[in-house]
Design a binder for these strands. Structure first.
Lengths: 219, 219
DNA sequence: GGAGAGTATCGTACTTAGTACGAAACTGCT
DNA sequence: AGCAGTTTCGTACTAAGTACGATACTCTCC
């Protein structure tokens, strides 16, 4: 019974709408909160209706990973490679921050969608245009992406957001720290991480610069 | 009814045995294959028996993450920092290769166990002993771990193991490649990744060296 | 050596989630 | 109107986490 009463006109479903709604649900409640039923609720339909547009939940997961890849700004081959690669690294980090659940997914999905392939192609192309050999490009891209993904993993696992609430969260761990068993961790926490103004996110630029410097030396 | 017939003496359960069995199940069938029922089968008991040793499945997940951290070789503060840090990076990579499911877990768990804390403490201590300032240690460790985790994520998402079967797996993707839409990816695949002898794992040493070189320059 | 008390294991059953199967409601054509 | 194609939904089965309480075994302490 589509578009039932004619008055409360409900937009048509579509694969696109299903996947976008899935992203919204995951953003709100994590991957665990994404169930066919929660997705159906979000779309204001009954669970089985979404199965007209996707074969199964796996297809939804593949689909939203590709949507996320599509949100990352593409580097432009032929431009200033440091700027282009840096730009897309920052963009990727932002996107993964917006959709932390995507990191876990990218690991388990094995069938890349078109946005994913386009994304990788643009990156590889940027390195090649900058003068990196094919082998060097493989090295560089593997390293850079390992850093971006890994940083996102770390950032996602932080139990706090920003620097303000770091202190209180750390309070709980401090009980274990105060046993004196972890002196170096304690020092790092007390003298650095818990200081006002500390933002783990700043570590991203340090790492990115170090890596880009190292890569530049290859040329 | 413990140790029932006296003859088929079944070893006592324990939290330790439960967690080790959980690791074994996850190693065999991935995180998805780890259910209370599959775990119980592995232990040769009935599902509810494991709940005597753990409060819920979450506790199992926290527990096995800590077990995995415990498998990683610790660096020794005060030794040759490059060697020590490099050793633990390789060890971490090996361990994460043995237990690929652990990567996804580390992201979502927020209550570190003792092995986890000990691990981080040893790393931080090694940097400090090498002469890195507290702030530099934070930079260095964040960068290094981002790389190690990120590399593990990438390695886990490879649909093949070793270089032999790369070719056939790539065959499927090639259909999309051959459309000519992804020229740089195609070049990378054909001229490099699919060449005999290519092993993605080798990229690890390149990245690790580049990072350690960059860090050494800080001192 | 029997009576609790404590320890370890299990049976039953409820809940949530994915989804197969087919019915039903609506659309546009003829 | 009648029919075919499209879209949505109702019912129901299965798998998995786990609450609750029963059951069986072990270890004191008299």
């Amino acid at each position: 019974m589509p578009r039932s009463q004619g008055s409360t006109e409900r937009a048509q479903l579509s694969r696109e709408r299903v996947l976008r709604a899935a992203v919204a649900v995951a953003d709100g409640g994590g991957l665990g909160g994404l169930t066919i039923r929660s997705l159906a609720t979000q779309l204001d339909v009954k669970p089985m209706s979404v199965y007209y547009y996707v074969a199964n939940k796996n297809e939804i997961l593949d689909g939203i990973v590709d949507l996320v890849f599509g949100e990352i700004e593409l580097p432009v081959p032929g431009g200033d490679w440091r700027a282009e690669i840096g730009k897309r690294a920052h963009s990727a980090r932002e996107v993964l921050r917006r959709h932390p659940w995507a990191i876990a997914l990218m690991e388990s999905r094995t069938s890349p969608g078109p946005a994913t392939l386009r994304h990788h192609d643009a990156n590889v192309g940027t390195f090649r245009a900058a003068g990196f050999s094919v082998a060097q490009t493989a090295h560089a891209y593997a390293l850079l992406d390992a850093f971006v993904y890994g940083f996102a993993v770390q950032e996602a696992s932080l139990p706090f957001e920003g620097s303000e609430d770091a202190a209180e969260v750390a309070g709980g761990m401090m009980e274990q720290f105060s046993s004196g068993q972890y002196p170096h961790l304690t020092e790092l926490a007390v003298d650095h991480v818990l200081q006002p103004g500390y933002d783990f996110g700043d570590e991203f630029d340090f790492g990115l610069s170090l890596i880009l410097d190292g890569l530049a030396r290859l040329l």
